[in-house]
Write a protein that binds this DNA or RNA. Structure first.
Ligand SMILES: [Mn+2]
Ligand SMILES: [Mn+2]
Ligand SMILES: [Zn+2]
Ligand SMILES: [Zn+2]
Lengths: 139, 139
DNA sequence: AATCCAGATGCAAAAGCTTCTCATTTCTAT
DNA sequence: ATAGAAATGAGAAGCTTTTGCATCTGGATT
């Protein structure tokens, strides 16, 4: 039950927050912009302001319910944080986003940070390329 | 001689472009914002507009003279492109930026892209953490 | 050295995403 | 049900980056 998560985050369980969380859970593509969320709300007849969408997404991010990405040349993109760290590979032509986890890369990152004298807190690896579809002209 | 590079890029060798390139070459920290560049110009008594700084940096980027980074929570940052690919590790506390190259990571990225069906065109790995100085309270 | 003009610049205005302000509304604990 | 704190909506504001346009300049040509 998702409203538990909202409550656990110390946030009141309000209609906008519940709706936005639902949208994130049901989104066909996991990675959505604030505007994407806002449009779904409008289409659903909800009267929720864009400012609220931004506010709620930011609060969810702070609460660890949501992760924000800043892919190159794209606006902030949000996805449900389900605790499974992963990185991203994006098609620069059609915007498709795929996820991956690579053990070797993860380990190397830790080693690199140590060697540079850093306590690693986070990292992000974005791979950009042309996806199979686009390569085959389906775009 | 740097004005050669400007010319090679098909750009007129103008005072703003020469000055900006000089600033990039002499910068104490390689990674500077447009505003940083602008301030140095002002301090040097140059009457060059911020719009020109942005325009020139973008042209340099297109020409391959400069690389632009979009580190998290920071504005666009530019650095001279000297042909040596590298990735970055940043201190989230003081903003320090270090560079590194890791052969293993580079190879894995290529493999990951292939496996996901992508022709990799680019990638960027940002590691965030706390640098040694900051960990020791020097901040 | 004087002329010419495409390309470059400066300034101000515009974009465009995101955040903030504040009056009003909605939760949720009594 | 009531009250107080928290949240919301609408629009204004913020900020970085880009653009439009009149003016200027580099540099190629006489
Ligand atoms: Mn993801
Ligand atoms: Mn660098
Ligand atoms: Zn594609
Ligand atoms: Zn530091």
């Amino acid at each position: 039950m998702e409203s538990q998560d909202i409550k656990k985050a110390g946030l009141k369980v309000t209609l906008p927050r519940v709706k936005i969380l639902e949208i994130l859970e049901r989104a066909e593509n996991r990675h959505v912009t604030a505007e994407d969320v806002y449009k779904v709300l409008l289409d659903g007849g909800e009267e929720i302001g864009l400012a609220t969408v931004y506010r709620v997404l930011t609060q969810f991010e702070t609460a660890g319910l949501v992760t924000r990405h800043r892919f190159e040349g794209v606006h902030s993109v949000f996805e449900l944080d389900e605790g499974r760290h992963h990185d991203h590979i994006l098609c620069v032509r059609c915007g498709r986003v795929d996820e991956f986890v690579d053990k070797a890369v993860e380990e190397r990152q830790q080693a690199i940070a140590e060697q540079a004298g850093y306590d690693m807190t986070d990292h992000c690896l974005y791979i950009y390329g042309i996806c199979r579809n686009c390569r085959n002209g389906h775009a």
